[in-house]
Computed example of a mutant assay.
Amino acid sequence: MKEQSTSKGFAILSSAAIAGKFLSIIYVPFLLKIIGGNRPYAIYGVAYQIYAYIYILTNAGIPSAISKIISEFVAVGNTEVQKRHLKYHDFYFFFWV
């Protein structure tokens, strides 16, 4: 990767983070008004942290682990077990994600 593209990517991610912080400055007072104060907002904040953790886990961790398992079966040549695992995990993700 070129150094120019790394610095450009860093600049884009930094500007996106700043834009997100700016939007939250605008968003939070309206949210507090809607849900009725600081205490419900604290409950919302805790629940959102749990939701964000589960969301990241299901969208980043589990699919990559499943693809690693499937690719190992394909590399070994064990297609029967690979197909069985793929069907099971497709069924699992249909109901949980």
Rank of each mutant, 00 (worst) to 15 (best):
V74D: 06
K33W: 08
K68L: 14
K2A: 11
F10V: 03
P63W: 12
L32T: 02
I35Q: 06
Y53G: 01
D90H: 11
A47T: 13
Y53F: 15
P29Q: 07
F22S: 14
K68H: 07
F93G: 04
G36M: 07
K21Y: 14
A16W: 06
L31F: 11
W96Q: 03
K21Q: 05
E3W: 04
F93V: 02
Y92I: 12
D90Y: 13
G36V: 08
L86F: 13
A52C: 07
I25G: 02
E3A: 05
T6L: 04
A60N: 15
T6F: 00
I66Y: 09
G36W: 01
Y55N: 07
F95A: 04
I35F: 05
V74C: 03
I43E: 15
K8A: 02
V97D: 13
R39E: 15
S14V: 04
F94V: 02
E72D: 03
A19Q: 07
I62K: 01
I50H: 00
T58M: 13
G45M: 12
S5E: 11
Y41F: 15
I70E: 04
F94Y: 07
A42S: 15
F95E: 01
V81I: 09
L23N: 02
Y41P: 00
G9A: 05
G61C: 13
N38E: 10
Y92S: 10
A52H: 05
Y92A: 15
F73M: 03
Y88R: 10
L32G: 04
E3I: 02
K68V: 09
G61E: 09
S14N: 11
F10E: 06
T58E: 07
I54C: 06
I69F: 08
F94P: 00
L23S: 05
I34M: 07
T58A: 06
Q82D: 03
K21R: 07
G77E: 10
H89P: 06
E72L: 05
H85C: 06
L86T: 02
S24G: 03
T58W: 09
V97H: 12
S5P: 02
A47Y: 12
I50V: 09
T6D: 00
E80S: 14
Y92L: 13
N38L: 14
G20A: 08
A47M: 12
A52N: 07
F30W: 12
Y55P: 02
E72W: 03
L23M: 13
I69T: 01
K87I: 05
I70G: 01
Y53Q: 06
K2C: 09
F95G: 05
Y53E: 05
S71P: 00
M1I: 03
Y88V: 12
Y44M: 15
L31C: 01
Y92C: 07
F22P: 00
Y53S: 06
A17K: 01
